[in-house]
């Protein structure tokens, strides 16, 4: 019986692994099994029975024709990415990274605006209510702009979803080498950007200290400068990080099982779609209700870090050790 099972498995091996084909495989196997045992009952030897059953299996071409599976189509179902497509993907990704980075930058700068106008009010340049209103109006405009940028970036990347999810995508070896070379070429830039961003974030509080030393009443403008520096640093992190991840995605070994690929991405999407809006909500509440504009921008890098940690940890633990 094992011989028969192996034979059928082999016959179906080259067909797409769909539910339909699985059902057909099982059905034919059940038939052959029944036939086999009946032949044994009729007094045939094991070898004779196997021989007859296999001889009466037929030709796989018939199945492929009836089910509209052509050998070519099967190959085509894995989309071979061309160099132009890879370039277009990287280009779109870069644009999306730029807009996402800009959006985040705007959100932080928006909160800096509120702080700035509060500073004007405190310094006596403006009336408190006028300052606050102007600040908040600026802030809302900027956030609306940021949201528009996020949406635009999302739409830009939407058509490359299949590359991100690695669904039936294949990259020729030669092209992979080219991509790896490009990634290598951009590596120093990436490292520099990350170092600059991290140094900026670490050093940013010193601005506060300096302003305090110079003139204690200027501390609020120190906060504004601090926020601006952090905004630039985070923009750098997002822009270069997203670019980098596009290369990594292209060079990754494709996940063979489409279900696993989709599951992985679902989890990543779920984390990202929950965390990012959550971060915005936290940002707005802590800002408007608790007046924490000076520090609440931290939710954005924290959210980004959390997404990276979660999805990184998930893919690390779910990846079979090779």
């Amino acid at each position: 019986m094992e011989t028969i099972e192996n034979y059928i498995d082999n016959m179906f091996a080259s067909l797409p692994k769909t539910e339909e084909m699985k059902a057909l495989h099982d059905e034919i196997l059940a038939n052959m099994e029944e036939k086999y045992y009946e032949l044994l009952q009729d007094g045939k030897t094991d070898n004779e029975a196997i021989g007859i059953v296999i001889a009466e299996f037929g030709n796989m071409d018939e199945i492929m024709e009836a089910y509209d599976i052509s050998r070519d189509k099967k190959k085509d179902s894995k989309k071979l990415l061309s160099e132009e497509e890879v370039d277009a993907f990287l280009h779109s990704n870069r644009i999306a990274a730029k807009w996402i980075g800009m959006g985040t930058l705007l959100c932080i700068l928006g909160s800096a605006m509120v702080v700035l106008f509060t500073g004007f009010a405190e310094a006596g340049y403006m009336g408190t209510s006028i300052a606050l209103t102007t600040g908040i109006i600026f802030f809302l405009i900027v956030v609306a702009l940021a949201v528009a940028l996020f949406i635009y970036a999302g739409m830009k990347m939407d058509k490359w979803k299949y590359v991100y999810q690695q669904i039936d995508v294949e990259i020729p070896k030669l092209l992979k080498d080219k991509i790896a070379a490009k990634k290598q070429k951009e590596h120093p830039k990436f490292v520099t950007a990350i170092i600059v961003a991290v140094v900026l974030i670490i050093l940013s509080p010193s601005i506060l200290l300096i302003t305090i030393v110079i003139n204690e009443s200027m501390v609020i403008f120190g906060v504004v400068i601090l926020l601006a520096i952090v905004a630039i640093a985070i923009h750098l992190l997002i822009y270069f990080g997203t670019n980098r991840s596009a290369y990594t995605k292209l060079l990754e070994e494709p996940v063979l099982d489409r279900k696993i690929a989709q599951k992985n991405n679902r989890i990543h999407d779920a984390i990202a779609t929950i965390l990012m809006p959550l971060a915005v909500i936290v940002f707005l509440i802590t800002g408007f209700v608790y007046e924490m504009w000076h520090i609440n921008w931290i939710v954005f890098p924290v959210a980004a870090l959390l997404i990276a940690i979660f999805s990184g940890a998930y893919s690390l633990f779910s990846k079979p050790s090779s």
Binding site: L24, E27, I28, N31, M32, E56, F57, G58, N59, M60, E62, I63, E65, A66, Y67
Partner: peptide, 10 residues
Amino acid sequence: KETTLYSAFN
């Protein structure tokens, strides 16, 4: 043959 039968069913 099995394959003939199931092509016909389909």
